[in-house]
Simulated assay, not measured.
Amino acid sequence: MTVSESADIQPAGEAAESILVAMTNLPDEASAARVARAVLEARVAACVNRLAPCQSEYWWQGRLEQAQEWPLLIKTTRAQYAGLEAVIRTEHPYDVPEIVTWPVGAGFAPYLAWVREEASGKPAGDATAPR
């Protein structure tokens, strides 16, 4: 059996319950922790990974800028995207926060089911769920 034939791997889906990974960057560790907590408390995501700081370089208002930022990787569903964006926009200190997503094409079936359940907008789940 090849990896693609494994019963534990499934397409992430095309409908509203399809899985997305969202990303945003914050200017400091405290704001990254605050946004991560707000997203989870709003039940619009199953998991947030607060990554180590990185160096960002970008154009802003006609000037080349450089800043240290704290990335968040957020696992959610297509159905919860609007709610996720609303929470990030409310909590984020930037005027124009980076909020980007990409679809998860396939993944470990039990993990994808866990993301769908936890990002359903209502309390549920198992404390022993995968991360």
Rank of each mutant, 00 (worst) to 15 (best):
S4T: 05
S4H: 07
S4M: 04
E5W: 00
E5G: 13
E5N: 14
S6V: 04
S6N: 13
S6I: 04
S6A: 15
A7K: 12
A7R: 14
A7G: 11
D8V: 06
D8Y: 11
D8Q: 11
D8N: 08
I9A: 10
I9Q: 12
I9R: 15
Q10Y: 02
Q10H: 07
Q10I: 15
Q10C: 11
Q10A: 15
Q10N: 06
Q10G: 09
P11T: 06
P11N: 05
P11C: 02
P11A: 13
P11Y: 03
P11H: 06
A12N: 10
A12K: 10
A12E: 07
A12M: 09
G13M: 08
G13C: 08
E14S: 13
E14W: 06
E14Q: 14
A16Y: 06
A16K: 14
E17D: 15
E17F: 01
E17I: 02
E17N: 14
E17Q: 15
S18M: 09
I19G: 04
I19E: 02
L20F: 13
L20I: 10
L20W: 07
L20S: 04
L20N: 03
L20H: 04
L20R: 03
L20P: 03
V21M: 11
A22C: 14
A22Q: 06
A22S: 11
M23I: 11
M23V: 12
M23Y: 11
M23H: 12
M23P: 01
T24Q: 07
T24E: 01
T24W: 01
T24S: 12
T24C: 11
N25H: 13
N25T: 15
N25G: 10
N25F: 08
N25P: 05
N25R: 12
L26R: 03
L26C: 14
L26N: 09
L26W: 04
L26F: 07
L26D: 05
P27W: 09
P27F: 08
D28Y: 06
D28W: 01
E29C: 06
E29Y: 02
E29F: 04
A30K: 09
S31R: 01
S31E: 11
S31Y: 00
S31Q: 09
S31C: 02
A32S: 07
A32P: 02
A33N: 11
A33R: 13
A33E: 14
A33Y: 00
A33K: 13
R34W: 02
R34P: 00
R34V: 00
R34A: 13
V35E: 00
V35S: 01
V35K: 03
A36I: 03
A36H: 02
A36Q: 04
A36W: 00
A36N: 02
